[in-house]
Design a protein around this nucleic acid. Sequence first.
DNA 1: CGGTGGATTGAGGTAGATCAACATGCGTGG
DNA 2: CCACGCATGTTGATCTACCTCAATCCACCG
Lengths: 245, 245
Amino acid sequence: MTSTASLHEFCARRGDVATPCRHCGAREFNICQALDAAQQDKLLALATRLQLGKRERLFAAGDPARHVYNLTEGAVSVSRSLADGRRQILGFLLPGDFLGLEPGESHHCDAETLTEAKVCRFERTTFETFLQDNPEVALRLLRIASSDLAQAARHELLLGRKTAVERIATFLLDLRDRSGARHLRTHPLALPMTRSEIADYTGLTIETVSRVLGRLRSGKVIELVGASAVRVLDDEELERLSGAS
Amino acid sequence: MTSTASLHEFCARRGDVATPCRHCGAREFNICQALDAAQQDKLLALATRLQLGKRERLFAAGDPARHVYNLTEGAVSVSRSLADGRRQILGFLLPGDFLGLEPGESHHCDAETLTEAKVCRFERTTFETFLQDNPEVALRLLRIASSDLAQAARHELLLGRKTAVERIATFLLDLRDRSGARHLRTHPLALPMTRSEIADYTGLTIETVSRVLGRLRSGKVIELVGASAVRVLDDEELERLSGAS
DNA sequence: CGGTGGATTGAGGTAGATCAACATGCGTGG
DNA sequence: CCACGCATGTTGATCTACCTCAATCCACCG
């Protein structure tokens, strides 16, 4: 199940620093973009490649934070739960996304695959040494972290102040924008997560998620393609309904 | 109103890297802690000291992100709003806290003082150059950012899944823990923010905040000392009510 | 095909919002 | 030092968006 990553498996190498990773797909803040070919080689030598099944756990809250990860294929949910089981999903990760960075010694949240997935895993200590030797990567990671913070801010606004319709509309638009580069507008947008996971992301219940999607459907704003894909029919209306901040 | 910071105004210098900043008070992730005396001097030479009044705006969402800040005195709220005025407060900053780091060219949120405050302000470009020359500071900032992300995760859980009582209890405990080093247990805990700001932080209304505080008071869990201070009478009960994750 | 786990739909309940009246305390000026 | 006036905060009555509980429905997979 684990093997050392080959060059192409982790990240295409080019002289041009801004070139997106060929394996991960284009990601604005992909960590590789700070690296030249020689540095990519060094980093790749440190990675362990993992193939994960559906609903497989990468780590749980409280686990010692021994590794950091870069998702290369599939989708992952990051969540945090209360003792009685109430769960808040913090975000859905897509290929190119980085996860597992912790300020302390243990993970503060759970990470679990939604689909089959591939990740590059690094020993935390090894990765930190690499960061010390390659400060530009640390700076890029800092940009990734502040980008994540900005996204967390948008999510807090959604959870604290938006209505059910606004939450679902925002969720759909976010998802579309993030997977947008890989899909044509006319293609249906894949929903790799269940209604329960959408509910836990939006702070609603599955019934409300279902009802809101139903309302959007009968209002001709979206079309449901099976239960796990959506086609956006009316961009502007969806935008309007999202309560754009 | 602005002047170059003196050494003590920004940060006490010591050979010991782990020594907390004497001016800011002890903060686990204070940026100064990564610096030796010579580096502190260099950083201080770059800082502009600002004295701010009550309810003064540091920056608003959309403003070009030209500066970063380090709060040295007072309290600041960071928030994000919808077009119709609904506001979500993302956090309250206390002395030692760093703010203003952005992934893009403009601020994604608003920052406003709650009280009179003092900040050290840095030109963003100057600060970024400093980071490039002092990678250990970039690494410390990365720890600060991941600490902020972990706090954002707790806040998302609060906003998405906690009841009104749990939200207020969590808020009070957080505030106490963060200002704890500076207050004895028996001293009342200052609430520098209004009910409206507590409401916008917890995703509730001012009426609900007032009612929940009232209920905690009549349950002998807290004591209200005027409207803007609280004494925690029953730690364990408050902890229990917070729905500790 | 038939079973099973997700998704949908419906009926009714409730936590917290909203609307409204009143209290309090604090800064200001007399 | 006190009286006034406005901000902020509290309390009460009602409303409603969303939750809860419950009954199907449906799609996928053996």
